[in-house]
Design a binder for these strands. Sequence first.
DNA 1: GATCGAATGTAATGTTGTAACTTGACGCGA
DNA 2: TCGCGTCAAGTTACAACATTACATTCGATC
Lengths: 154, 154
Amino acid sequence: MPVHDHQLHEGESLREAARERLTRQGEQWTGMREAVFEALASFDKPASAYDIAEAVSKAQERRVAANSVYRILDLFVGANLARRVESANAYVANAHPDCLHDCIFLICDQCGQAVHIDNDRITGGVRDAAKSAGFTETRPMIEVRGTCGDCDSD
Amino acid sequence: MPVHDHQLHEGESLREAARERLTRQGEQWTGMREAVFEALASFDKPASAYDIAEAVSKAQERRVAANSVYRILDLFVGANLARRVESANAYVANAHPDCLHDCIFLICDQCGQAVHIDNDRITGGVRDAAKSAGFTETRPMIEVRGTCGDCDSD
DNA sequence: GATCGAATGTAATGTTGTAACTTGACGCGA
DNA sequence: TCGCGTCAAGTTACAACATTACATTCGATC
């Protein structure tokens, strides 16, 4: 199987999983939402709502306003289809919409790439610490700014 | 010793520690910087650059522009006199300018209060995880949004 | 007191995020 | 089929956050 077929398949099955997930929550999978999801997933690094608005505008050859994108991104984040990277004011598609867990983002200051890692020991520790301090309904956000291996070697 | 005296002393000694720290780094402790630090320290929750600009404007009875405040806040963050709370686009004074360590913020969605905790086991774990992923010069930022004990009981 | 650099002021602009309201598509029961 | 309810999306306006470029002031040093 050629590489690009594999990648394409990834894209398609990811979109399918996203659609599945969203509709299962009683939300609609509209053309606009699909377009936003596609745009989001097409970026290889966190994309701002404005980046996505621009990408969708180009793809559809019509003006798409950023606030419409915001609405949809908020919906996606709520449904676990996407995640917000706070320190970059940007969003990334979630490759595993059905796996609900806290995650950790490493963001390269140089190239803007973000890598996403899971570590339940760490995130659990953070949740426990918050709970000990009397906090409830906690949503940890763990991000690390730094320099990635690629940029470091330059 | 009356309570307010004690608090006042806290404020003064904190300002002294901040001045010490900044001058030790070869930076000047100017009237403007003191005013910004005082304003920052006077808030009981994370303050935005615009909040601080407003507070300083009021205290000095003249208009202070936000970008001047940004400049100084950046300097403060660099010198460990203040910290930026990413998820709130806001800043808090650092009560221990001389202790260099990662910290964890818990921010209440209801009241906006932020509490600051230290936990080297957690932050160390995050740094290690980032290092394992090939990242260098890492700056972890760990924040937890949630509901604080006070607001939860309401 | 000339001058040089750092700090601050000023103005403009760019970016990100929300709110309120309107329009349009679709389904469903009368 | 008509009217209505509902939800998505469009439109407009604005608020909040952040940066840039350049001018001015102030203090230290010569």
